[in-house]
Design a protein around this nucleic acid. Structure first.
Length: 89
DNA sequence: AGCCTGACAGATA
DNA sequence: GTATCTGCCAGGC
Protein backbone atom coordinates (compact mmCIF):
# COMPACT_ATOMS: atom_id res chain seq x y z
CA UNK A 1 0.00 0.00 0.00
CA UNK A 2 2.42 2.64 1.18
CA UNK A 3 5.20 1.18 -0.96
CA UNK A 4 3.44 2.71 -3.96
CA UNK A 5 4.05 6.14 -2.44
CA UNK A 6 7.61 5.18 -1.56
CA UNK A 7 8.21 4.29 -5.21
CA UNK A 8 7.24 7.73 -6.45
CA UNK A 9 10.48 9.11 -7.93
CA UNK A 10 11.85 12.49 -7.00
CA UNK A 11 10.30 15.30 -8.96
CA UNK A 12 7.11 13.35 -9.64
CA UNK A 13 3.78 13.11 -7.87
CA UNK A 14 0.73 10.89 -7.77
CA UNK A 15 -2.86 11.72 -6.96
CA UNK A 16 -4.79 9.68 -4.38
CA UNK A 17 -6.85 8.18 -7.19
CA UNK A 18 -3.67 7.33 -9.11
CA UNK A 19 -2.23 5.51 -6.12
CA UNK A 20 -5.46 3.55 -5.70
CA UNK A 21 -5.43 2.70 -9.39
CA UNK A 22 -1.74 1.83 -9.29
CA UNK A 23 -2.43 -0.56 -6.45
CA UNK A 24 -5.37 -1.91 -8.40
CA UNK A 25 -7.65 -1.79 -5.41
CA UNK A 26 -9.21 0.60 -2.99
CA UNK A 27 -10.29 4.14 -3.64
CA UNK A 28 -8.87 7.60 -3.20
CA UNK A 29 -10.53 7.74 0.20
CA UNK A 30 -8.98 4.47 1.27
CA UNK A 31 -5.58 5.80 0.23
CA UNK A 32 -6.16 9.01 2.14
CA UNK A 33 -7.24 7.11 5.22
CA UNK A 34 -4.32 4.70 4.97
CA UNK A 35 -1.84 7.54 4.63
CA UNK A 36 -3.46 9.39 7.49
CA UNK A 37 -3.09 6.34 9.73
CA UNK A 38 0.05 4.60 8.48
CA UNK A 39 1.50 7.35 6.29
CA UNK A 40 4.55 7.75 8.51
CA UNK A 41 7.89 7.19 6.83
CA UNK A 42 6.73 7.76 3.28
CA UNK A 43 7.04 10.80 1.01
CA UNK A 44 3.38 11.67 1.52
CA UNK A 45 4.07 15.14 0.11
CA UNK A 46 4.39 13.46 -3.31
CA UNK A 47 0.74 12.50 -3.07
CA UNK A 48 -1.54 15.28 -4.23
CA UNK A 49 -5.19 15.69 -5.10
CA UNK A 50 -6.47 15.27 -8.66
CA UNK A 51 -6.40 19.05 -8.97
CA UNK A 52 -2.68 19.01 -8.32
CA UNK A 53 -3.11 20.67 -4.97
CA UNK A 54 -0.85 19.38 -2.19
CA UNK A 55 -2.15 17.56 0.87
CA UNK A 56 -4.98 19.28 2.73
CA UNK A 57 -3.11 18.56 5.91
CA UNK A 58 0.13 20.34 5.17
CA UNK A 59 -0.17 22.16 1.83
CA UNK A 60 2.58 24.64 2.59
CA UNK A 61 5.08 22.00 3.69
CA UNK A 62 4.22 19.69 0.82
CA UNK A 63 4.46 22.54 -1.70
CA UNK A 64 7.83 23.54 -0.25
CA UNK A 65 9.20 19.99 -0.44
CA UNK A 66 7.82 19.53 -3.96
CA UNK A 67 9.38 22.77 -5.13
CA UNK A 68 12.63 21.65 -3.53
CA UNK A 69 12.44 18.44 -5.57
CA UNK A 70 11.99 20.29 -8.87
CA UNK A 71 8.36 19.25 -9.23
CA UNK A 72 6.82 21.30 -12.07
CA UNK A 73 4.49 23.77 -10.44
CA UNK A 74 1.67 25.71 -12.03
CA UNK A 75 1.18 28.52 -9.59
CA UNK A 76 -0.12 27.10 -6.34
CA UNK A 77 -0.84 23.76 -7.96
CA UNK A 78 1.40 21.00 -9.25
CA UNK A 79 1.57 20.79 -13.01
CA UNK A 80 -0.24 17.51 -13.53
CA UNK A 81 0.38 15.94 -16.90
CA UNK A 82 4.05 16.68 -16.36
CA UNK A 83 4.62 15.81 -12.73
CA UNK A 84 2.13 12.95 -12.76
CA UNK A 85 3.97 9.66 -12.38
CA UNK A 86 2.66 6.69 -14.39
CA UNK A 87 4.52 4.07 -12.42
CA UNK A 88 7.09 3.34 -15.13
CA UNK A 89 9.75 5.51 -13.56
C1' DA B 1 -25.20 -5.74 10.76
C1' DG B 2 -26.20 -0.49 10.32
C1' DC B 3 -24.65 4.34 10.65
C1' DC B 4 -21.24 8.16 10.64
C1' DT B 5 -16.90 10.17 9.38
C1' DG B 6 -12.82 11.16 6.45
C1' DA B 7 -5.57 13.27 3.72
C1' DC B 8 -10.78 11.94 -2.49
C1' DA B 9 -12.76 12.22 -7.53
C1' DG B 10 -15.86 13.23 -11.22
C1' DA B 11 -20.14 15.31 -12.90
C1' DT B 12 -23.32 18.96 -12.96
C1' DA B 13 -25.21 23.82 -12.31
C1' DG C 1 -13.87 30.18 -10.98
C1' DT C 2 -17.15 28.09 -6.76
C1' DA C 3 -20.95 25.04 -4.71
C1' DT C 4 -23.41 20.68 -4.40
C1' DC C 5 -24.24 15.57 -5.21
C1' DT C 6 -23.00 10.91 -5.60
C1' DG C 7 -19.76 6.83 -5.43
C1' DC C 8 -15.94 4.85 -3.36
C1' DC C 9 -13.24 2.06 0.73
C1' DA C 10 -11.71 1.73 5.62
C1' DG C 11 -12.29 2.46 10.52
C1' DG C 12 -14.84 3.43 14.80
C1' DC C 13 -19.31 2.99 17.58
Amino acid sequence: MLDAVERIPRGRVMSYGDVAEYLGRGSPRAVGTALARYGGGVPWHRVVTSDGRPNPSDPAGAAARLRRERVPFAGERVDMGRARWDGRT
